[in-house]
Design a protein around this nucleic acid. Structure first.
Lengths: 154, 154
DNA sequence: CCTCCTTTGACCATTACTGACCTTAGTTCT
DNA sequence: AGAACTAAGGTCAGTAATGGTCAAAGGAGG
């Protein structure tokens, strides 16, 4: 965690944690000012880190009294939600899609950060020597490992 | 007789030993500079020495503020046997071979009986619709799930 | 010699950050 | 009501800063 974008991300997540409603409203210009950066840097952080794939919803309004509102989708039963996520994996899974799923499962505390790293390593290991079909094998592997993890807990 | 790669390996391992968290973060370019070599030499060392089989987890990020992070997973004696078993899995694994391995792992208390059943189910699920290559996929799946289980414990 | 491991470098991919320019919404003046 | 002004936020393309890949060359040992 060392770039400006990382710090802004952490800052927003902290605000989210502190808010009861899992929603924060902020002013782009003000936030940019806090971090002494250009306002568009905020957009950069929002579009790269607070995506719908990771469970965030960002709304905004321009003009006078404009704002940016960030919400985090959280479900009561994390395990159930994890199952849904897993079932959404089709026959292929790109690295980006995998990252998003892992990020959400870490968020939901269904897997630990360490487990995420291990899963990444294993997938990389197993797919590295392939020249085609990586996405297919990745889908199978991720599904298998996550199912095992989730079911082992239940 | 030690090569440059050996020195870099030793250097990183030293850093790991000195770190409290068993994790080090480094800059590829800087490290290459320390050893006056091309940056890709670092990748060579990482891919040949810091593999998941040897218990290392390597993460990296490109771009501004990029980094390479290396973590180490200790495996206890209780799981050492399990590791040997896993490494004995070749490119194919029949159902019988799988059953043998699972039985031994249950014996060693590396996995529970319940986990064995879950693994069976997942393998069944994933291979059922294939008409050839089942043994290959089974090898990959079992290896992945068992690696994950063992390493998650460490 | 032949093979395997090491080393290098040219070329590639990804991520972060900035600034000029654009769009939208509210407010005020005529 | 309409025009002009003010106050937000949005886009996008360019630049810089990293790390990744791969094939070819080099070298040590058998």
């Amino acid at each position: 965690m060392s770039t400006l974008a990382d710090h802004i991300e952490a800052y927003i997540k902290q605000m989210l944690r502190e808010s009861q409603t899992r929603t924060v409203e902020l002013s782009r210009a003000q936030l940019a000012d806090v971090f002494s950066c250009v306002p568009s840097q905020i957009n950069y952080v929002l579009t790269t880190r607070f995506t719908i794939e990771r469970g965030y919803i960002v709304e905004s309004r321009r003009g006078g009294g404009g704002y940016i509102r960030i919400g985090h989708i959280h479900v009561g039963d994390c395990t159930a939600h994890a199952f849904d996520l897993l079932e959404s994996i089709g026959s292929e899974l790109t690295e980006k899609q995998m990252e998003n799923i892992l990020a959400r499962l870490v968020d939901y505390q269904v897997i630990t950060n360490r487990q995420r790293q291990i899963i990444r390593g294993i997938v990389q290991q197993e797919t590295s020597s392939m020249d085609e079909g990586k996405d297919i094998l990745r889908a199978i592997l991720v599904r298998a490992m996550l199912f095992l993890t989730i079911k082992s807990k239940a």
